[in-house]
């Protein structure tokens, strides 16, 4: 097979398309079509190549045969000139009538969609224009030479039809192979590249979308947390106020009590201290919760 030139990378570059899901679908369809076409064309090319090899072989045979036949023919002509002792070419030429004895018929044969012309020899045995030539001498040799030459022309006709088929098939095979290669090495990779490009673009979009969503969620959470903390602080404050008020009431009671009894004073002061410690701890705890 021929050595192919490396295909330029530019040819396989993805097409300039807008990366959408619809284009992706279109591209996938195109790839599928290209693959089917490729396998079909490949099969066609194989069928043609098979035929081509067959014809090449037959041309070889026909050429060899023609060599032999032509040699016999030329030799029989030598025999004629020996037997008649002169040139009878003119007599033969002049006795040709208008009815052709040897006709070539052409028909067409279809090989995987290629029309090959086929030539067929058609000999009308009843026509013999120079059967009188060499009546006096050498007539048999003349007739024999005529037969041998008819065979030679038949071989030529065969060869002509094979050669024509050869040339046409050669052309068609070249075209088909070029198409197969173009699909295999350009169209399919390019479509694949385009699909990959579209996929990557779509993935990128997906990722962006995900990150955006996440960001939104985070913002939302921060917002809720802030709201919670405010609520908690509000509660604390209320609590603290309530406690203060309670303390106020207690101090008034205590003053009243101090006035009443001096002995209980020490006990009450200790208990008071303990309570303030408790409340500061509680505030610290709630603050830590808010910060999380």
């Amino acid at each position: 097979m021929k050595i192919m030139k490396p295909i330029s990378r530019a040819l396989r570059r993805p097409e300039q398309v807008f990366p959408t899901r619809m284009t992706l679908g279109v591209m996938k369809g195109k790839l599928k079509g290209a693959q089917t076409g490729h396998s079909l064309l490949k099969r066609k090319s194989e069928a043609l190549t098979k035929r081509f090899r067959d014809i090449t072989k037959r041309i070889d045979d026909a050429k060899r045969k023609m060599g032999r036949v032509m040699q016999t023919a030329a030799f029989s002509l030598a025999e004629v000139s020996y037997a008649t002792g002169g040139n009878i070419g003119f007599q033969v030429q002049e006795s040709i009538s208008n009815n052709a004895r040897f006709k070539v018929k052409a028909r067409q044969e279809n090989v995987s969609g290629v029309y090959l012309p086929q030539f067929e020899a058609d000999i009308n045995e009843s026509i013999n224009d120079f059967r009188m030539t060499g009546l006096g001498r050498g007539g048999q040799q003349v007739q024999r030479a005529r037969e041998v030459y008819s065979k030679a022309v038949e071989t030529l006709v065969d060869l002509a039809s094979l050669q024509t088929a050869f040339v046409i098939l050669d052309d068609v095979i070249k075209v088909t192979n070029r198409r197969v290669n173009a699909i295999e090495h350009v169209i399919i990779p390019r479509t694949e590249n385009t699909i990959a490009y579209i996929n990557s673009e779509l993935d990128e979009l997906d990722r962006e979308e995900f990150y955006r969503l996440k960001k939104v969620q985070e913002k939302k959470q921060i917002a809720t947390a802030a709201a919670d903390a405010e609520m908690a602080a509000k509660k604390l404050r209320e609590e603290a106020e309530r406690l203060n008020e309670l303390e106020k009431h207690e101090t008034e009671d205590v003053e009243k009590l101090v006035v009443k009894s001096e002995e209980d004073k020490e006990d009450k002061g200790e208990a008071d201290q303990e309570k303030t410690v408790d409340t500061t701890e509680l505030v610290a705890e709630t603050e830590g919760d808010v910060i999380f």
């Binding site: 060499g134 009546l135 006096g136 050498g138 007739q143």
Partner: peptide, 24 residues
């Protein structure tokens, strides 16, 4: 004689009548 024999052989496949042959 040579001509006679040759004419006879070579005219075997032709439609020459025997009168025509005799003339030759």
């Amino acid at each position: 004689d040579k001509r006679t024999i040759n004419i006879c052989i070579n005219s075997l496949d032709t439609d020459l009548s025997s009168d025509e042959k005799l003339k030759m």
